[in-house]
């Protein structure tokens, strides 16, 4: 069973999960859990909280596999988006407010460094880094603080001393530019 699953596409694994095959969930875990945990830890700066988030994402995939639509992107992207959302929810919950305050300063200082050293797939990492570095400074900072810092655009505006509308526009424009820049990478990506 496991040998079959190792060759299965992500979409087929999700179909098997819908039929209550725990082995299929285990295979999805094997393929993606490391990346999900990496992202959750990156945002939360707390391994225990990050584990909780990853666990929740997998239990959610188990209970509602139909939420993944293979036509709308890879399973990895879907799970990463879920993980980021849950991690940010955690951050904004009262219990972790204290940790968050402690970590704010260092996030701002290390975001660029971490991106350079932590992105998993090296060839993609290079493209992502280039695309980010080529953004105007204001756009890059706003995206890093929002995505890796888990801050709302309003908080980013306060941190950077910029109007909220400006930050909102910069995030949108920056992501748009990165998308254009990364089009070859995005187009070449398969199911994984």
């Amino acid at each position: 069973m496991r040998a079959d699953l190792q060759g299965a596409s992500d979409a087929n694994l999700v179909m098997a999960i819908a039929r209550y095959h725990e082995d299929a969930l285990a295979e999805v875990y094997r393929r993606h859990a490391g990346a999900l945990f990496g992202l959750a830890k990156r945002v939360l700066w707390d391994a225990a909280l990050a584990e909780e988030v990853v666990q929740e994402v997998f239990l959610r995939l188990w209970s509602s596999p139909e939420r993944f639509d293979p036509d709308r992107g890879s399973l990895r992207s879907f799970l990463l988006a879920q993980t980021h959302g849950r991690a940010v929810d955690q951050l904004r919950s009262e219990s972790s407010r204290r940790q968050r305050e402690a970590r704010d300063a260092s996030t701002a200082a290390t975001a660029g460094y971490d991106l350079e050293h932590e992105v998993f797939d090296l060839s993609v990492a290079e493209h992502v880094r280039d695309a980010l570095v080529e953004l105007p400074e204001g756009q890059r900072r706003a995206i890093e603080l929002a995505y890796f810092g888990g801050h709302s655009y309003r908080e980013v505006a306060t941190m950077l001393g910029e109007p909220e509308g400006t930050v909102k526009s910069r995030i949108r424009a920056g992501l748009g530019k990165m998308h254009a820049q990364l089009a070859p990478v995005l187009g070449a990506r398969g199911d994984e």
Partner: peptide
């Protein structure tokens, strides 16, 4: 399109901690 970019930004590597799968499996 924005989500695709976010997916690339968030696609950092790393290993899942030992024991996590067992906890998930227990919950199942």
């Amino acid at each position: 399109a924005h989500r695709e970019v976010a997916g690339l930004l968030g696609n950092a590597g790393g290993e899942a901690p030992a024991g996590l799968w067992d906890r998930i499996s227990d919950e199942l």
